[in-house]
């Protein structure tokens, strides 16, 4: 599969602040890639570097096969960018905003009106198309900004915190749109500090901390590499008796980490041990209703990484 983005040792400082510090990674075409990190981690700066809007202090990159610093316009012509604050002109109407972008991005003249109308309809803005955008809600502005980012049918999208400040309904709309972009085969780089969002939408994530890329991979890979085995929960119909807890704890390799009213939280090295633990519980008269591993969330990974980086 073709490579959409390849960054090699990218760095950029502002004064003494190393905003992006030796970042290397690749994103294959068609992937939804998450850039995670708290505020100030360097996510926005990294996007600006990749789009040739900022120059790097060191390192190199290829974006869609082009060098962003010698052919910035070429890269940007094939990228759509959703900036952190939606870059829409409040004094202009939604239609005028999209028309402007279509012109600058070189959408063929005969197609402009049609493309703009399609986007207005697709992003549910058609009935307010000729009103000044200044009066739109935050969610509507965000939809318009997303429509604007798509006006030239880009192969690659940079979405910088697309749900920041949106209410849950508007956030969900954005999530559905990102899902749509994936189905259309576009490459998406999604910056976020919302872990649930990254977990739901991204194929792989890169975690930034203080400008450095501290982890890269799928959420599962990261949790396997970084965290101890995830705990197993055994749930019972009745309150857990001492006999049940004792028998389960006696299974080789299994330790009871937490004893609740009707559940036990266990550390079990593998599924073999888990099955033995369930057998022991049943043997001791426990009526087991559920047994399963609790998967690590991205949140667990994230805090482990941030702690390591601190």
């Amino acid at each position: 599969m073709a490579t959409a983005i390849a960054a090699d040792g990218l760095s950029r400082s502002f004064g003494t602040v190393r905003a992006v510090d030796g970042v290397s990674f690749e994103v294959p075409a068609g992937e939804v890639f998450g850039l995670l990190g708290p505020n100030g981690a360097g996510k926005t700066t990294l996007i600006r570097l990749l789009a040739g809007v900022l120059l790097p202090g060191a390192g190199s990159a290829r974006v869609l096969g082009l060098d962003p610093w010698t052919d910035g316009p070429g890269v940007r012509r094939r990228c759509g960018v959703l900036t952190e604050t939606p870059a829409v002109y409040g004094r202009l109407t939604a239609r005028q905003n999209l028309g402007f972008a279509a012109e600058v991005f070189g959408v063929p003249l005969p197609e402009v009106a049609c493309r703009v109308n399609d986007l207005l309809a697709r992003f549910s803005l058609a009935d307010r198309a000729d009103e000044p955008v200044g009066g739109f809600s935050k969610g509507m502005k965000q939809r318009l900004a997303l429509a604007r980012a798509l006006v030239h049918d880009p192969e690659l999208l940079f979405l910088d915190e697309p749900t920041a400040g949106l209410d849950p309904a508007a956030s969900r709309q954005v999530h559905e749109m990102v899902g749509g972009l994936r189905e259309e085969g576009r490459t998406v780089v999604l910056c976020t500090h919302r872990l649930v969002e990254a977990e739901a939408l991204c194929d792989r994530v890169g975690v930034l901390a203080k400008g450095r890329l501290v982890a890269l991979g799928t959420v599962r890979e990261l949790s396997e590499r970084l965290l101890a085995d995830s705990p197993v929960a055994l749930s019972f119909l009745d309150p857990v008796s001492d006999a049940v807890a004792g028998e389960v704890g006696a299974v080789p390799g299994v330790t009871v980490e937490e004893r609740g009213e009707r559940h036990l939280l266990l550390a079990a090295p593998d599924d073999e041990a888990l099955a033995a633990a369930v057998g022991a519980a049943v043997g001791a008269g426990g009526r087991v209703v559920a047994a399963g591993r609790r998967e690590h969330t991205l949140e667990d990974v994230y805090f482990a990484l941030q702690e390591a980086a601190a």
Binding site: A51, V53, G72, P73, G74, R76, R77, C79, V81, T83, E84, T85, A87, V88, A101, V104, F105, G106, A145, R148
Partner: peptide, 9 residues
């Protein structure tokens, strides 16, 4: 920022 992300030189 949006202006600077346009493909214009």
């Amino acid at each position: 920022e949006g202006l600077l992300f346009l493909p214009a030189t």
